[in-house]
Design a protein around this nucleic acid. Structure first.
Lengths: 138, 138
DNA sequence: TTGCGTGCAAAGGTTTTGCATGGCA
DNA sequence: TGCCATGCAAAACCTTTGCACGCAA
């Protein structure tokens, strides 16, 4: 596959949209809807191919949720790779994505590395569960 | 949808298969292959419908990995949900899924709950990173 | 000019649904 | 006997691929 990224209208557009969703996630369906609302034509294949490249460039992260059909994407381009104590919590009830800065959770990384030889990628990993608000509502 | 679970050959068969995979996960494809090897006929729709019911009955758990290979299922019927210490580690390099039983990781759950009010679903959460073997190869 | 990027359509794979039949309670 | 469960096939969906053309470098 090609390695070079040409700068195109579509790529710029998609990148702008992704940036506008910081702290949330979006789906391919969301991109399509946004394109339609802006009267911009972008083929489905292009969306998938562009997203795929951005994933490989670590600009975007992809993950799958249980409730939804289809993949979810999240913009992570501006995050500092050295902040290894940034974690993502995803509420399975309300869908909210929580960005958590917590030094204590460093113990997870070191424990996994020392005791199990596993280097944790805290950017990619998403902790699923139930947030405080949703616990109270139940 | 119907609430009652009739006891049928197919359901028993599927449950037996699920139990035989404790500590690992399986896919719909695995179920099909097992059926074929045992010369038992079970339609794809039946597999999906039965699995769906078992999920609702909390007998099995479903989660999605990054590859487009479809859903993964795991038998959890005999585990105690309140003290579950079963975690999933996924190697981003070789793709291996490691099922890890580790009491020490309980500290993650309690820390997230006490300090951040977040109830961690350790069945659904997948820790992404690099396994020991792949670290040595690099 | 080169060859990556794009749009369209078709293909591929997974999961769901409709319907008639089978089988548990 | 009532009604859920099943098998088959088709449909619904999401995602990928093939191909010709467009466009950035």
């Amino acid at each position: 596959m090609p390695r070079i990224n040409y700068r195109t209208k579509q790529r710029d557009f998609l990148l702008d949209f992704a940036k506008s969703t910081v702290g949330k996630h979006f789906t391919v369906e969301d991109v399509k809807a946004y394109c339609e609302s802006k009267n911009i034509c972008m083929g489905t294949a292009t969306i998938y191919r562009s997203l795929e490249k951005m994933i490989q460039d670590h600009i975007i992260n992809r993950y799958y949720l249980d409730e939804k059909t289809g993949a979810c994407f999240e913009y992570v381009g501006e995050e500092d790779g050295s902040t290894s104590n940034h974690f993502h919590l995803k509420c399975e009830s309300c869908g909210k994505l929580i960005h958590l800065e917590c030094h204590d959770l460093e113990i997870i990384k070191s424990h996994l590395l020392k005791n199990h030889g596993f280097y944790l990628d805290s950017f990619k990993t998403i902790f699923y569960g139930i947030c405080k608000e949703c616990q109270n509502n139940e």
